[in-house]
Nucleic acid binder design. Structure first.
Length: 492
DNA sequence: CTAATTT
């Protein structure tokens, strides 16, 4: 609606004069930092739609290529583009839910995906969109709009690669569907307290292993399931283990289930399989040069020796606690060791990996969401999908690599840094390199996305601190990419 | 022991 919607991400634009919404927010009061909403698990989820607090955030500009299953149809037909939620013929209850989440108008991916998802008869979809641009809300709306509340059986199933992401998606769906009377939603993740019980809910969101198991044991009735969503689909289909579980799940469902695959990344090696998994799909794709989020300032720091990594990390601790930060490491063990060491030296940090028990994982991610824990050390378990809008800084303590620990992993890099810069906000991603090998790994990643990484000059610490500080402050004020470009670029 | 993914 507003002109901000089409703000180009051109570099070096002069400071915005009109429509500077941030002016209403006094600089010192972090208006949207960790809002103390009722802190039960569903309510505190930020959602993945446009944020509230009256701020108008620009959608990052990108060119999405639309390809329709019906090759006769014209992708440019305005019918396949929704400029408002109202024109989608959603129920009043659902529109009320959307409004309640402070969604104003559809984001780019929502604009393109929703009309295609909502068509009848239902059509499969493979959709790619950058991190933090509203994928969850897109498939959640499709699910909710297709639920028949008079039928108590499960009708939609969404799968995600981690417990935390499944819970987050469930929170968005529950929140969005809060005015649909009688709607029941349920997590299908490991939970010993409800062993052997039937999953009686309209919508289930879970992890592949648990869902497969529950289907086999007939604790999930597949008869009425008409939608299957795989979030982070490339990861789900590629990973041995999860890939098999997902296809097993699919074979246990109705043949005509609407299959919906979403991710920010679809590397070449999984595209063919994805197309077989969701045949005759409408597809939304991006060139991989278009995947990097402009609002995320990508930095790296060259450290002399491996042993100095820890000391370097500590130098950033003050900046990390300004808002919220995530430190990514390669192994569970490093996560544990880093936490121990930092805590022993009086720093407040939390740690989460798959080595922890389910309940403990829930407790820690909830603390991080609420802002009670501001610095979180974690593994790739949280690399994807997690939406905590107060995250202003992501630190790659270890460069993300493939299973061999040597080959760089560009997709994981992109997903990790995408934990900041949510919905057009600005953020900092800082990667540690400490030897020739890690430098080359990062170089390959930057080259893959044709993106620029800026070195941190360790000789001028004040300047570094200053630059990062600026970005963090702007992010807390809800500033957008376009508003920040000048400030950020001057720092390098 | 890469990490993640049912019991």
């Amino acid at each position: 609606m507003s002109s901000a919607e089409k703000t180009p991400v051109a570099v070096e634009t002069p400071v915005e004069t009109p429509a500077d919404t941030s002016a209403e927010t006094p600089a010192e009061t972090p208006a949207q930092e960790t809002p103390a909403e009722d802190s039960l698990e569903n309510a505190q989820v930020d959602g993945s739609g446009p944020p509230g607090n009256g701020s108008v955030l620009a959608d990052t500009a990108f060119n999405v290529e639309v390809q329709l299953a019906d090759l006769q149809a014209d992708p440019n037909n305005p019918l396949f583009s929704a400029k408002s939620f109202e024109e989608l013929q959603l129920s009043e209850e659902l529109l009320k839910g959307i409004k309640h989440m402070n969604f104003r108008s559809p984001s780019k991916v929502q604009e393109k995906a929703l009309p295609l998802l909502l068509m009848n008869p239902p059509t499969n979809m493979i959709a790619q969109s950058q991190s933090g641009t509203g994928k969850t809300a897109a498939f959640s709306l499709n699910i909710l709009s297709r639920i028949d509340l008079s039928n108590p059986e499960p009708q939609a199933l969404a799968l995600a690669p981690s417990r935390e992401l499944a819970r987050q998606i469930l929170g968005v769906i529950t929140h969005m569907g809060q005015f649909m009377e009688g709607l029941k939603t349920m997590a299908a993740i490991p939970d010993s307290s409800r062993r052997g019980q039937q999953f009686n809910a309209h919508i289930l969101v879970g992890t592949p292993g648990t869902v497969q198991d529950m289907l086999r044991r007939r604790l999930i009735n597949p008869r009425s399931i008409k939608i299957l969503v795989l979030d982070e689909a490339d990861n789900m289909l590629d990973q041995q283990g999860m890939g098999e579980q997902c296809s097993r799940v699919k074979t246990l469902l109705n043949k005509d289930v609407q299959t919906v695959l979403f991710s920010a990344t679809f590397p070449p090696n999984v595209i063919a399989y994805a197309k077989r998994f969701a045949p005759a799909s409408n597809t939304l794709t991006l060139a991989h040069e278009e995947l990097t989020i402009e609002g995320i300032k990508q930095l790296y720091i060259d450290i002399d020796k491996d042993n100095d990594k820890y000391a370097t990390l500590l130098k950033f601790y003050g900046l990390m606690t300004q808002a919220s930060s995530i430190i990514f490491v390669r192994t569970r063990r490093t996560a544990e060791e880093l936490e121990k060491r930092m805590v022993a030296e009086g720093h407040k940090v939390a740690q989460l990996s798959g080595a922890l028990e389910g309940g403990e994982r829930d407790r820690i991610i909830d603390q991080f969401r609420s802002g009670e824990a501001k610095v979180l050390i974690t593994t790739n378990v949280l690399a994807r999908g997690i939406d905590v809008q107060s995250v202003t800084m992501v630190i790659n303590y270890d460069v993300p690599t493939m299973a061999d620990g040597i080959e760089p992993d560009p997709e994981t890099y992109l997903h990790r840094i995408g934990r900041t810069g949510r919905f057009g906000r600005v953020g900092v991603a800082l990667t540690f390199v400490h030897d020739k090998r890690s430098w080359e790994q990062l170089y390959k990643i930057a080259n893959y996305f044709k993106t620029q990484l800026y070195p941190i000059d360790t000789n001028d610490w004040d300047a570094v601190e200053d630059m990062i500080q600026k970005i963090i402050k702007s992010s807390r004020a809800g500033k957008t990419t376009a508003e920040m470009t000048t400030d950020i670029t001057s720092g390098s």
